[in-house]
Amino acid sequence: MIEARQLTKVYRVPVKKPGLWASVRSLWDRETRDVHAVDHLDLTIGEGERVGFLGPNGAGKTTTLKMLTGLLHPTSGSCTVAGHTPRDRHPDFLRSVTLVMGQKQQLLWDLPASETFVLNRALFDLDRVAFQRSLDELVELLDLSPFIDQPVRNLSLGQRMRCELAAALLHRPKVLFLDEPTIGLDVQVQAAVRTFVAEYNRRNGATVMLTSHDMKDVASIAERIVLIDGGTIRFDGPLQQFRQRFGGGRRLVVRGVEDLGDLGFTSAEGRASATVEPDQVNGLLQRVLERHPDAEVTVEDPPLEEVLATAFGGKEG
């Protein structure tokens, strides 16, 4: 569905030196520096896959998404999405993908969202029956009916984002690119968006590629993780493997017990927890049970935030 070969994007940025003379000189003698935003990226994503695209700020996530949607042209290398070269912007290509950006909107600001939907019906040339069917489905899944006829400017951020999603999915794209879709939303709406994306993927078999800072997004939507840093891929594999590789440890949680500090546990809010390598889990478990035979002990995966912090070597959470 998505195929990138040696995909590369180099930005040429002017180097600005301070001072008047330097400004004047820059008129004819511009010094520039090349920034490799995306550097020989190889990536294959199959139909129906849900991929979390992770990386710190400036890692090249958004640049990659924009190349895959045809908004940016690769400096070198190539990519194919849904059988098309994105930069050609073929109408069939545009009809089969969508891009949702948490910080950009397509809704008409002073009109009800329903007007944007009608406009998109026209622009995507959907036939009325299919349009009505997908609209009804989206209205129901995203629970839009209470505010679909209110001007967008009067909606809350969460309501607006739900309408954005509907506008982006009316034409039933086969490939979804989501760039920070839950940024700034409150917890309930974030959860609703996640459930919705998963549901859309299940119903339509659509391919989903998601970038997010919020690990809960990734944990609940993605089944495969691609980790990018400095424009190159650092990891590509199933979510489970990602946890094992970077957060190899398991977390032991003991409830209602406080006196395990000597075994490496930290206590908070009436529970003690410790993260250890998988092969040490049994030994530690035994020593805990020796001391508190009836303690309630669980073994968990560490939170994804911790995993990511390890992956980026403390660069960013």
Binding site: K66, T69, G70, L71, R89, P91, D92, L94, R95, V97, T98, L99, M101, K104, Q105, Q106, N120, L123, F124, D125
Partner: peptide, 17 residues
């Protein structure tokens, strides 16, 4: 503002719209 990007993702020339 870059909002042209969203318009470019629709299969119709923005100038026509």
């Amino acid at each position: 503002t870059g909002s042209l990007s969203m318009k470019l993702l629709r299969p119709m020339h923005p100038l026509w719209v």
